[in-house]
């Protein structure tokens, strides 16, 4: 193994290693992130329809639990409900223990994918945590549809 005789060479080697690791990190961010499905789109029901999301593609669904839509199957563990952003709504099915804060009319974020029947099969459901916290992405983007006058003054991006 050759020693590093001069300061310049030492600096060069350190730089090369650092750049190599940084390149690896960049690769990680761009390529691997996409491959492993780490970057989940955050969609609301009407966007799901607009973008014609493919069956099986994972994404996060945000919205409100439609009032009167929650039903529980006979096995006691599977829940079916509809998530709405007031303009459109999407049927969701989830097997597991619901977060204790899950309520009709409240914000909810679920993660999963559409199945062939157009039902969003969720493997995680996050509900609103407390009165100071709305799960991000659950506030309807097309608020006019909810009859909310404040919607008219909200920003163009809908938040």
């Amino acid at each position: 193994m050759a020693g590093l005789k001069t300061r310049k060479r030492q600096r060069l080697v350190v730089m090369i290693v650092a750049v190599a690791v940084l390149a690896l990190a960049a690769f990680l961010i761009v390529f691997a992130g996409r491959q492993t499905g780490s970057f989940n789109l955050f969609l609301q029901p009407s966007e799901v329809f607009q973008q014609k999301v493919a069956v099986g593609q994972r994404f996060r669904l945000g919205g409100l639990v439609e009032t009167g839509s929650v039903a529980r199957k006979d096995d006691g563990l599977t829940y079916e409900f509809r998530v709405t952003d007031c303009a459109a709504d999407l049927p969701v099915s989830y097997t597991g223990i619901m977060p204790s804060l899950f309520r009709e009319g409240q914000g909810v974020v679920s993660e999963g994918a559409l199945n062939a029947d157009g039902v969003f099969v969720a493997d995680t459901v996050l509900a609103k945590h407390d009165e100071n916290y709305a799960a991000p992405g659950t506030l309807p983007k097309n608020e006019e549809a909810c009859g909310h006058p404040e919607a008219l003054t909200a920003g163009q991006d809908g938040r």
Binding site: A134, L139, C146, A154
Partner: peptide
């Protein structure tokens, strides 16, 4: 940013 308040919770009671 205008209108961005992550803590404001839109009421679902409207309507």
């Amino acid at each position: 940013q205008e209108g961005r308040n992550p803590n404001e919770i839109k009421s679902v009671m409207i309507g």
